[in-house]
């Protein structure tokens, strides 16, 4: 439908840091949600990068930073060669058009005061996507069609009159209106019933194929990430601990944290229960660690070495398309 290939990386995130502090006059503790994160989204073809982590990993914050909704503490976010925080108004509008989002909570994203149509009308109005009401309506119908919704089903209704699945599809339709190049999807199916998730994921896969849209897919669910993504970045407390081609990384996880995760996820197959496939078992380890020094996973790591207590591991390539930050693999 519309494919715009771009030879350089589409998005470059360089040394991204986000620190949340307690506030001006109060001297509260600070929280480093994103800690020196760097990654790239290629531009030559549609690509899905999964950003995986548990709660507190910083994955949602990273998404908000990439979208430019919250300011960063330091680092650079470069889109098509331009730093997004240094863009002029026109450039910024262009960024907003090409990078859109789908959020997790299909209830929260709708202002209960307005009918759901508004969610579709706002981008059309603000980005001047249509020159007449007629044209705007056509765009809306097109977008709804791409997500398998009919206008009669959803238009003219209030948010509480639609189901969670319908609301989520509508969100995706909204994201499509501006013909984005990249969609940041933050847990798009975790609040939707299991039997309806596949449909929404398949819809998004179709968008990738038909419209050439790339995704940053933020999730805690490794199985879903595996189904949907090409690459994976595993976050632990704001840092990238392992990344690369998703089949490689999940097939042979290197970092102890990822090994722990993969061993712990429940598989919907009674023939392959935990006992039969544990790579690494969680232990009740209480190791004290100085604040800010050493590997973040040290206090929970069953394979920790002495060096882990006081030196941060740096990224090491252990295979084509497979990187890990762990002293076990340092040369």
């Amino acid at each position: 439908m519309y494919r715009h290939a771009y030879n350089n990386p589409l998005l470059e995130v360089k040394h991204l840091v986000k620190v949340f502090t307690g506030g001006g006059l109060s001297r509260g503790k600070s929280l480093t949600a994103v800690d020196d994160l760097s990654f790239e989204i290629p531009g030559d073809k549609a690509h899905v990068t999964a950003l995986v982590g548990e709660s507190g990993s910083g994955k949602t914050t990273t998404g908000l930073l990439v979208l430019g909704i919250i300011p960063m503490t330091s680092g650079q976010i470069i889109y098509k060669g331009k730093n997004i925080w240094k863009m002029d108004k026109k450039g910024w509008m262009g960024y907003r058009k090409e990078v859109q989002a789908v959020f997790q909570d299909p209830y929260e994203v709708y202002n209960p005061f307005y009918k759901v149509d508004r969610v579709l009308e706002l981008p059309i109005k603000n980005f001047k996507l249509a020159s007449s009401g007629e044209e705007g309506r056509k765009l809306i119908v097109e977008a709804l069609d791409a997500v398998n919704l009919t206008p009669e089903e959803v238009l003219g209704k209030y948010p509480h009159q639609l189901s969670g699945g319908q609301r989520q599809r509508l969100m995706i339709a909204r994201a499509l209106l501006t013909r984005p190049r990249l969609i940041v999807a933050d847990e798009p199916v975790s609040m939707v019933d299991a039997s309806l998730r596949a449909g929404i994921l398949n819809t998004m896969l179709n968008l990738k194929k038909a419209y050439g849209i790339s995704f940053i897919f933020i999730t805690h669910d490794l199985s879903v990430a595996d189904y949907f993504s090409d690459d994976i970045i595993v976050l632990y407390r704001g840092s990238n601990v392992e990344s690369g081609d998703i089949k490689k990384v999940l097939g042979r996880p290197a970092h102890p944290y990822l090994q722990l995760l993969v061993s712990s996820i429940p598989l919907p197959d009674p023939e392959k229960r935990w006992k039969a496939r544990t790579m690494l078992k969680a232990e009740e380890i209480t190791r004290r660690r100085g604040e800010g020094i050493g590997c973040k996973f040290y206090s929970r790591c069953p394979k920790a070495l002495d060096i882990c207590a006081n030196t941060r591991p740096s990224s090491v390539q252990i295979d084509k398309d497979h990187f890990v930050s762990c002293h076990l693999y340092s040369k």
Partner: peptide, 26 residues
């Protein structure tokens, strides 16, 4: 911090739009 305010920002709404159209009615 509500989702619909964030969404409005993504849809190109400026500060004034958000104050009067998203926050005020609520």
């Amino acid at each position: 911090e509500r989702g619909f305010v964030r969404l409005a920002k993504l849809s190109g709404e400026g500060d004034l739009g958000i104050i009067f159209k998203e926050i005020a009615p609520n």
